[in-house]
Design a protein around this nucleic acid. Structure first.
Lengths: 254, 254
DNA sequence: TGCTGTGAATCGCTTCACAGCC
DNA sequence: GGCTGTGAAGCGATTCACAGCA
């Protein structure tokens, strides 16, 4: 209830499957690298290898965008860079605010991958008055009292939350009230937002826990059953872990 | 080819679907919060709300672990915390090394969510000799020359890469050669690893790009078709973005 | 009565395999 | 001949809906 329950089919956006959207940045990165090396065209096979997916999936993904390839030849790198950028909305400027300038917030402010992809760090915001005015990544930190004004003055629609867990929901509420409609949440909390607001979350410890799960299984398989935790069940002789493509999430809207 | 292609079904692990494994840390976090508030039992409905999923999914997930609930009552919080922890392998100690102690590496070293879940930062490693000996989060940074020795002395099987993209593959190769079998990669590169090594990647800019995609669509829907990019196609009158549960990845093994 | 546990239905993503075009 | 684009098959995950138990 509190979470803004809607139960819409929740799937495609303008006909492009979410799973495809999530891979477009991957393709874009690989294509950008090729572009910098002045490679004129790539085959689906080559690009797929560079992006770490299989070629059938890549071709299917591109087919949702349109027919941008040439049979017998491949894809024009520059053209594809442009098309994917446009599809992702990266041909426009996205002012972003980062709230919570601790270690992580500072790391994000310094992260080069933003500026190179249409994102502009419009402001850094922190609740600590001692931080105010202090420059991080060349940008002076502003106090959170001014959050609403900063959002509005800069026309910010994307906010990044890098505060401690306890502050996250309150910051979120203020961001949303001020007009932010997309939030990237690094705090280990489930945020509740009204309908129409997108939240994606990244939880660093969740990723490690998933690795630990698989790591445990590897150990259990080598020396089948050490403590009573893993009975016999399904001890397979060969490895049993990485699937080069097609495993699962941990980061998702919520 | 270079990526260690295997094409194993790549799915369940000891019968537990990957999608479920990816949610267990979420449940665990919600349960831990309840435990701290001394709540003795929860219903699937309550816990699902706290974890940000729907209750049917949660019950199905738990059914893969066993029958740990009581019909008509709910789940015992403490018992479930223990069962999930055990399943994830968090009842044992996981020494972890972080390679690349820039802003992000420092943020990770300081991150409290690790220690509280069975992970122990065994060492911080950086290639910059000027960093050597400098303490970060109370742990002295060691030079990367000693990487192999550090891994072996500490029995490390999980490594975190927080280096610049250019160094990531080389660091990865050395980690793997030294015995690391699970890697969490923050560098924006596709790592190639031999079979039997798990890689999960987190790319901060990818998350933002996915948000931008949806943000762009929201704008396009309000004022249907501004430039030629989005013709009519599927302009829906009501919102059309967040699905409270069940959207898509961006972080995945690769 | 209330809530769990789960077969069955459904949905969406992935993979296959090949037709179509350069 | 080579590579894209795509129907169709396959498959895993989600959701439904209710049987089963406290």
């Amino acid at each position: 209830m509190a979470t803004g329950r809607t139960h819409r089919p929740a799937t495609r956006s303008r006909g492009i499957p979410e799973a495809t959207v999530a891979r477009l940045p991957l393709y874009l990165r690989a294509l950008t690298a090729l572009s910098e090396r002045s490679v004129p065209t790539v085959s689906s096979e080559e690009l797929a290898a560079a992006a770490g997916v299989n070629s059938a999936k890549l071709r299917k993904d591109f087919s949702y965008l349109g027919s941008y390839g040439t049979r017998g030849v491949g894809y024009d790198v520059e053209y594809l860079v442009y098309q994917i950028s446009r599809e992702l909305g990266l041909t426009q400027d996205w002012p972003v605010v980062i709230v919570g300038i601790g270690n992580l917030g500072a790391a994000l402010a310094n992260y080069g991958g933003f500026a190179s992809r249409g994102f502009r760090v419009a402001a850094l915001i922190d609740a600590d008055p001692a931080m105010a005015g202090k420059p991080v990544a060349g940008i002076p930190v502003q106090h959170s009292d001014d959050l609403e004004k900063i959002i509005q003055d800069n026309g910010v629609s994307i906010g990044v939350i890098a505060t401690p867990a306890g502050a996250a929901q309150q910051v979120c509420d203020r961001l949303v009230a001020a007009g932010v409609t997309s939030i990237l949440n690094f705090a280990p909390t489930v945020l509740s937002v009204p309908d129409g607001v997108d939240v994606r979350k990244v939880d660093l410890s969740i990723e490690l826990q998933i690795l630990a799960f698989h790591e445990q299984r590897k150990a259990g398989e080598e020396a089948a059953s050490a403590d009573g935790a893993l009975p016999a069940a399904a001890a397979r002789s060969d490895s049993a872990d990485q699937g080069p493509d097609g495993d699962m999430p941990a980061v998702m809207p919520a």
